[in-house]
Design a binder for these strands. Sequence first.
DNA 1: ATGACTGCAAAGACTTTGCATCTTT
DNA 2: AAAGATGCAAAGTCTTTGCAGTCAT
Lengths: 140, 140
Amino acid sequence: MIIIIEIHEVILLIESRKNSRKRNAILEAMRGTKSHPSAQWVYDSLRSSYPELSLATVYRNIKLFERSGEIISVAVVDGQERYDACVLPHSHFICRGCAAVIDLDFPEDLENARDRLESEEGFKIESVCVSYKGLCRHCL
Amino acid sequence: MIIIIEIHEVILLIESRKNSRKRNAILEAMRGTKSHPSAQWVYDSLRSSYPELSLATVYRNIKLFERSGEIISVAVVDGQERYDACVLPHSHFICRGCAAVIDLDFPEDLENARDRLESEEGFKIESVCVSYKGLCRHCL
DNA sequence: ATGACTGCAAAGACTTTGCATCTTT
DNA sequence: AAAGATGCAAAGTCTTTGCAGTCAT
């Protein structure tokens, strides 16, 4: 059942849930890593503890967590969507070599941050991407 | 033929090309729009002028342009990769309603920019994403 | 009992690739 | 001629979905 509540122009979408061991394990796995996991990563990391877990369940729960705001999508790397259970504002470094996604502080000054990351962290930064997401005037 | 040149630790990858009407048209189409097109968009917009154009050719040339730096990938929106033939630093607003990708200036101050965009452009901004791409220490 | 959750297999969507044919140099 | 470019269809990935059976309330 999906309940849609509108209060003062704010629309809340509440999906009712029952308790589920596997769902809990999926969220725990995502909260317990800084690897910014893909669905496949979560599946692989839980297979030993939950041998009958299916990849479809992981995908379904990830979408559920995303809709509820418990996790966010941080990037699509090499065709795989990557998520983060840390929803506080911060930024990321994405390595095109090993596909690692690494947490960074939210920068005060973008150019400053770039130089500092190269010298202090030893990254080679090839591009900086800033994007805002939301609704345009037309879709509001 | 692919020529790999290394000069002072900088590696250049040069792919030899022959002249091709369709390739020229693909790049022109991408340079002539601010819509941050997907491969499908480019294909659709060229079909009337090049009825025998195939989607595979569009994909192949887009990858070629990307490797050579003539275009960049700016986002994956609703599962489709979106490109930009403007490679100068700037940022984007991505609408989750209509999937529009809109050019913005590169911000000096991130929080400032957010407020200004909401009041002046009428966007509703739900998230800000900063990511750096390149090579980590390990992959260098 | 009812509604939610899951596994499995099938379907979908987007992208890449193999191969024969045609173009450019 | 040789190296590239293209169309077509097939294959590849990642993700979503339909359905029947299971679990939580």
